[in-house]
Design a protein around this nucleic acid. Structure first.
Lengths: 148, 148
DNA sequence: CTAGTACCTGGAGTGAACTCCAAGTCAAGC
DNA sequence: GCTTGACTTGGAGTTCACTCCAGGTACTAG
């Protein structure tokens, strides 16, 4: 499979595919005699994995480390396991933060929806309604502050 | 409240607080006669909102737009509603991507855990086990390819 | 009044992750 | 063999979100 085909298949630029390989985020891709990339099934597996990790927001650096360990052989299996567990921990944290923010957006949106329907602003809360900050429970302001 | 206190309260640098204000991610903060920032309850609400949105990964740019609309007054309420709904859509997408990646990590981790326990690599799947890509359902490779 | 510390601004610098470019190589059609 | 278009590399440029810095101003203790 040519780089063009892979780029179309995964909707990612050819430059990014070359970049991933260059920095070691995927192992070296199979080449033709002439030096042209010819992605095999295994190469595609790595590409797909890289895209999956990146689209979840994981660092390029940690994927590079994973590939480095993989290339060092079976002795690095415990280290790889630890790395994967750490990445999972990061994602779970990020997911929790997103959920908190979605809740906050839901609340704001419900207030705005009412305002749009009735043509009036009817709330008087301060901007903060808890956001996962340790300090989230603050007292309400005294006045008709309509920011949200 | 001084910038130092706010920075400690939310565990964010003073530079970042000034940056948020400078680019318009929060409205201008209350100042003392001498020009020193003196965060009021309302200012803190904006700071907290900004931190919440950023920690979920939303763009600074969209927060700037929200503040701009807010400062233009009530006529922009429908536009603000639309903006918030768009941000929520983005977060839900990102959340789904994270969930997919966590599942993939779970699978890999379970395989590695077995390998660490038994001291042997016992799987033979290719690297890809579905990652939200349209192309996810690929055939297994023919050999004992132990990449994952 | 002075020393010292916290704060101010505008602007430059940084790191991450691409993205683009120039100059050259490879391969398919005529 | 020659043209044309896709591919190659190394390196430079871009964007985003900070982060740092220099030179100056404001409050606080002695």
């Amino acid at each position: 499979m040519t780089i063009k085909e892979v780029s179309e298949k995964y909707d990612i630029s050819q430059d990014t595919l070359r970049y991933y390989e260059r920095v070691g985020m995927i192992p070296p891709v199979t080449r033709t005699a002439g030096g042209i990339r010819d992605y095999q099934e295994a190469d595609l597996g790595w590409v797909e994995l890289a895209i999956c990790m990146r689209s979840a927001g994981l660092a390029v650096e940690s994927m590079i480390e994973y590939v480095r360990l993989y290339q060092e052989g079976d002795s690095t299996i415990p280290a790889r396991l630890q790395l994967l567990e750490e990445q999972r921990r990061i994602l779970k944290e990020q997911k929790a933060q997103i959920e908190t923010t979605i809740e906050r957006l839901d609340y704001k949106i419900s207030r705005y929806a009412i305002a749009v329907e009735t043509g009036k602003l009817t709330w008087d809360e301060a901007a903060a309604e808890a956001c996962g900050n340790t300090d989230a429970k603050r007292q309400r302001t005294d006045a008709g502050d309509k920011k949200l």
